[in-house]
């Protein structure tokens, strides 16, 4: 059927073209549309879809309760929470503020639910990440190869360098870190273990001796201060990486948008 299939694709292509040309054509109506109305319309359409979402949610959990599926008891809590919120949003507001602004009135029932149930749940869920990040880094920051080593070094330096503890790490620890890193890189080249360890210790001692000679304890050079190393990592290699990713993402989006506007990528419309 033409109308069922092709119409949607035509709408997609022409909307893409229209939205894009709004930036270049000197018609105020079109400009107004791309600047203001087009995103607003998205919100409105998405708002209508929200009805579908809520119906889906109700259907899913009611089914679960009715059919007594596994863990059905918990679905009652979901349904209760949802219905209470809807009642406080549309039926009972407990304050004199008009409908709508009452959502943000500190004395309304809706705000009470928001403040004492929704907020703590959301922020605790967010804070749970602190624990996950710990177990993730414990497992993930392992020296499997050179790339993983870089990930680890820049991560650890950042963690230390950004908090006060980084500033009190003395220069000689950093010297030993540098030497260890250097030896870790050339480890595969030196076969003899004894030679490796002796030279490792010798180089360390040499560097420390040099440090005392140059009086690094009184005036530590910047490259031996964790916070400064951290600043440099942020300013240089991390910036380069961010920039490349930014450009890459933009190119990906440009190509994807081009495919959509020219009607080549249409599987999203079920075609």
């Amino acid at each position: 059927m033409f109308i069922k299939r092709q119409l949607a694709i035509i709408v997609m292509m022409s909307m893409g073209f229209l939205a894009l040309s709004g930036y270049f054509l000197n018609f105020s109506v079109l400009r107004e549309f791309t600047d203001r109305d087009a995103p607003q319309w998205y919100m409105i359409i998405a708002g209508f879809a929200a009805f579908l979402g809520c119906l889906n949610l109700l259907q899913l959990h009611i089914q679960k309760v009715v059919n007594k599926q596994k863990n059905w008891q918990y679905s009652i809590f979901t349904l209760l929470g949802f219905i209470i919120m809807i009642v406080f949003a549309f039926v009972y507001k407990n304050v004199d503020t008009p409908w709508g602004p009452h959502l943000k009135d500190e004395n309304s029932s809706f705000y009470w639910m928001y403040n004492f149930i929704y907020l703590p749940l959301a922020s605790t869920m967010f804070a749970l990440l602190a624990f996950f990040v710990a177990s993730a880094s414990y497992r993930a920051f392992r020296i499997r190869n050179f790339e993983a080593t870089l990930l680890l070094i820049s991560g650890v330096l950042l963690m230390l360098g950004r908090v006060p503890i980084g500033a009190i790490i003395p220069w000689w620890v950093v010297v030993i870190m540098y030497v260890s890193f250097l030896f870790a890189m050339i480890a595969s080249k030196i076969k003899n273990r004894k030679v490796f360890f002796i030279s490792f210790i010798c180089v360390n001692l040499l560097c420390l001796f040099l440090g005392f000679q140059l009086e690094w304890n009184t005036s530590t050079p910047l490259f031996l201060l964790i916070p400064s190393i951290q600043e440099w990592i942020m300013a240089v290699p991390a910036t380069a990486g961010s920039r490349a990713i930014m450009i890459g993402i933009a190119l990906g989006i440009v190509a994807q948008s081009f495919r959509i506007i020219t009607g080549r990528e249409r599987s999203i419309l079920g075609d």
């Binding site: 880094s137 961010s242 993402i249 990906g252 989006i253 190509a255």
Partner: peptide, 27 residues
């Protein structure tokens, strides 16, 4: 394509499409 979340996927997932690769994947 969210660059700040890629590291978590890199560390916790088996395979990751990084940035541009993700947009090219559909093609």
């Amino acid at each position: 394509g969210s660059s700040s979340q890629i590291p978590f996927f890199v560390t916790a997932c088996d395979y990751v499409l990084i940035g541009e690769e993700f947009y090219a994947a559909s093609a």
